[in-house]
Amino acid sequence: MEYINIFIKSIFIDNMIFAFFLGMCSYLAVSKTVKTSAGLGIAVTFVLLITVPVNYLLNKYILQPGAMTWISPSMANVDLSFLSLIMFIAVIAAIVQIVEMVVEKISPALYNSLGIFLPLIAVNCAVMGGSLFMQQRDYSNVGEVISFSLGSGIGWFLAIVGIAAIREKLRYSHIPPALKGVGITFIITGLMGLAFMSFMGIKL
């Protein structure tokens, strides 16, 4: 039950885009058509689902203050948490590289459809943000972390597909010339965020 709670909460209430603005750059840049944005959404979900649990284990058994007692009790005073930023980004960059190679080998069709998005995910704030929030929120086991990362990924996917669908229709509407493109996208994202705020009252 706890897992489902975290899952629903990270999709709707703590949505990566509408509540924390993570991954906005690619969200704004790649949301012109539904097809490409869905591809990017799937790729981000996938990478989040792998990197966040790996970083959780890394954090729990190596980086946290006193995490290395499993090697020897004398290491109880070692605190490597200042290294967490560089470790997380290294893990993310490495895993994105591996995922890219695996996907290319196993499914060339998927690889071609994701194309340039895969390598760019390494610098997507949503992926790094997922790891940092995981560290901040102190989840108690891997199961919770997995449901958090899957939920965040799906929330991001929903947001980018939603805005892409709206932008496809926007092409036919009359917008003040100065607002065309980025301007109106910001305002619509704001309005979507307002809609998502209505989930905030839900107690899980």
Binding site: F20, F21, A178, L179, G183, F186, I187, G190, G193
Partner: peptide, 19 residues
């Protein structure tokens, strides 16, 4: 102070600048 309003404000800044 809420998140969505920040987006709308940036949209307005862009609007002013591009006008």
């Amino acid at each position: 102070i809420m998140a969505p309003m920040a987006l709308i404000l940036v949209g307005v800044i862009i609007w002013i600048q591009r006008t």
